[in-house]
């Protein structure tokens, strides 16, 4: 058991960073990491011995994130009828323009799959193969999401163009 802890522990800071970059809410991010760790400990015997532990942990966390996203989308769908009027139009508020200068705000505007690839490869230093495994997609998909995502980020930052906000709060 102590051995499991010793193996998992070094990856926790990166898992927290990835979770926070996706969710941008400290509590929610740590909840996601905790769910991930619980699942990892519970499935410890099922992991491939020769497999990459880091990629395995990120895959668990990513799947939990996607599950959560689906759940939220369903909730949002239900709430939509009454709540839509309350959501401000993008570009109306003055402060949103300043927010665009923040790289994270631009990242938030990307589709979730492009965001995930940019974070896993560009920040968490996963190889393209590992990122493909984490996301459960072919490596070609990883490469195309990466370049499409980067292209959008570039455009947002260079032109100051208003990215369409997609973040699901």
């Amino acid at each position: 058991m102590d051995e499991i802890a010793a193996l998992i522990e070094p990856h926790i800071p990166a898992l927290r960073r990835y979770a926070w970059a996706l969710l941008r809410d400290h509590e929610a991010a740590d909840d996601l990491v905790q769910d991930c760790l619980e699942r990892a400990v519970g499935r410890w015997r099922l992991r491939r011995r020769d497999g990459d532990l880091k990629a395995w942990l990120f895959a668990i966390q990513h799947n939990l994130f996607i599950d959560g996203l689906r759940r939220k989308r369903r909730e949002l769908l239900r709430a939509e009828v009454e709540d839509l009027s309350g959501i401000p139009e993008p570009g109306i508020e003055q402060e949103s323009r300043a927010a665009m200068r923040d790289i994270l705000a631009c990242l938030d505007a990307l589709p979730a799959d492009q965001r995930a690839v940019i974070l896993l490869v560009g920040v968490e230093d996963l190889s393209y193969e590992e990122a493909a495994r984490v996301l459960g997609v072919p490596i070609g998909t990883v490469m195309s999401r990466l370049s499409r995502g980067r292209e959008k980020l570039r455009r947002y930052l260079e032109s100051g163009a208003q990215p369409m906000l997609r973040r699901v709060k």
């Binding site: 058991m1 102590d2 499991i4 802890a5 010793a6 998992i8 522990e9 926790i12 927290r16 740590d30 990491v33 905790q34 760790l37 619980e38 400990v41 519970g42």
Partner: peptide
């Protein structure tokens, strides 16, 4: 979020 804490709780 310490691994040991998660294991103990589980």
């Amino acid at each position: 979020l310490r691994a040991a804490a998660v294991i103990a709780e589980r």
